[in-house]
Design a protein around this nucleic acid. Structure first.
Lengths: 260, 260
DNA sequence: CGTACTGGTAAACTTAATATACCACCACTC
DNA sequence: GAGTGGTGGTATATTAAGTTTACCAGTACG
């Protein structure tokens, strides 16, 4: 029962710059501010954090040293390339042109999203749930209204929201970069759209299975639903490819028969 | 899904004086520093908190305004009279001279300590448990060694330790002042010592029942053991009083018979 | 007594942080 | 393609906070 003079704790001498730096750093590392995102202007941040602009600037300079932020004169400040750059240009190029790699993409998503959904079911906060509910509704609304582009965005955002709700930093950043690329069309194999065309209702049904399982905290159901969902997409793609292959062969055959 | 600019939190502009004030305030309110306790010297605290002395002094001045601390020139700073002063001098006087009030004292302790023990069993930290274990051992050691004064102090300290471990601020302060008075002998009714004399082994056995129940997280057992313990003390006192009354009557009778 | 602790007071100095003004760059529009 | 309004870049003056140092004044104790 030793009794040091451990009664009093040293007072934190954290400066304003320290605090600002830590706050922004934290927003980046936790994925609230994702790779490439634009930060508010220095003046806005100074106002929001109740701090003078020079102090915001000092903090940004530190973050730039740490390669966490890129400051562009006249434009603004942006979140720098973090771990998401595991997806380097070469890799992206490879995947987007290689059919086998596309299956890897789906397989990867299948496992990761099942895992993320399992975690999300136990960890989602009220704010996370609000976002998930909104995106489910928005997806369905856009689909029924025939707004294909909006629906597709809501689709991707929904997956990102589930990942966000799993609160695993690595997962959030990695998947964020993948969804980003997906949104830009890198993974949209030309044949892919054909594969899922007409299955909008089914996709929404599956999203709801995932979403409600997460909302209601059913971890295993959420994981299973997420796994099934990506598996469905993959199977659709396989079937579609089979059809294309058959069609290809048929055309060959036809050409032969027609005496080309 | 409204999206305020609620991303950035205002930076805390808490000054050093604020921090020091809050820390000391907190130590007092949580009962780490109890009523009347002497604080370390300003120079010591400045060193311990890694802050200049003027800032410590400012904090103490604020705390003095709040009546939480009393500063005495040349002597030191002390924790002021808090809620424990529900035990005002008049009340103390009354209790210490009135036998019925003494039963109130025991009844109060019986209920409060049972409640405290129940809470302690679920809330005690490792540090709390270390203290409890130490006091159990020390009480037994002192008893076996015949060090009555030390044993009595360990006895009271044990009860205080159980209360501390319940982590209820009100409870800690209230009981602390009661134990303080008990230690000073206010509640040591002259007949009280007689009542429990020779029951040292039994008291230690009961303390162990309480202590181990708390250490092992058995809330109901702890409450019951604490209740039984005080009840035992009360019953001992009652019996002792009965004996005294009988003795008193016998002497009267004897006097009559002897023809006074 | 005097020594060694305590709190009480004051001044000089250093540093952190703010406020303000003005410049340079970029994008967008008329 | 010049203007306008937003952005970051820079410098300076000023204010506020905190530290350091020294010395004064009580209290306790041998």
């Amino acid at each position: 029962m030793k009794k040091k003079s451990a009664i009093f704790e040293p007072i934190d001498h954290e400066t304003v710059v320290d605090s600002v730096t830590h706050q922004i750093e934290n927003l980046i590392v936790t994925g609230v501010l994702k790779e490439g995102a634009k930060l508010p202007s220095e003046r806005e941040m100074a106002d929001a954090m109740d701090v003078s602009r020079p102090k915001i600037r000092e903090a940004l300079q530190r973050l730039e040293e740490l390669k966490l932020v890129v400051v562009k004169h006249g434009e603004g400040s942006f979140v720098g390339p973090i771990i998401g750059s595991a997806m380097n240009p070469a890799l992206i190029n490879l995947i987007s042109r290689n059919q086998a790699a596309f299956y890897d993409y789906l397989e990867y998503r299948r496992e990761q999203e099942a895992f993320a959904a399992r975690l999300a079911a136990t960890r989602a906060t009220n704010s996370d749930k609000e976002i998930i509910r909104y995106l489910l509704a928005e997806h369905e609304r856009a689909h029924l209204a025939g707004e294909d582009k909006t629906a597709k965005k809501a689709d991707i955002d929904f997956h990102a929201a589930i990942v966000d709700a799993c609160h695993n930093t690595m997962m959030i950043h990695t998947m964020a970069s993948i969804y980003e690329l997906t949104h830009k069309g890198v993974f949209y194999n030309p044949d892919f759209l054909l594969a899922v065309v007409g299955s909008g209702d089914e996709l929404i049904r599956q999203h709801k299975l995932i979403g409600f399982a997460v909302l209601e905290g059913r971890a295993e159901d959420a994981a299973q639903a997420a796994w099934d969902h990506i598996d469905f997409v993959e199977q659709s793609f396989r079937k579609s490819n089979e059809n294309l292959r058959r069609e290809f062969l048929s055309q060959k055959r036809l050409a032969v028969v027609s005496g080309d």
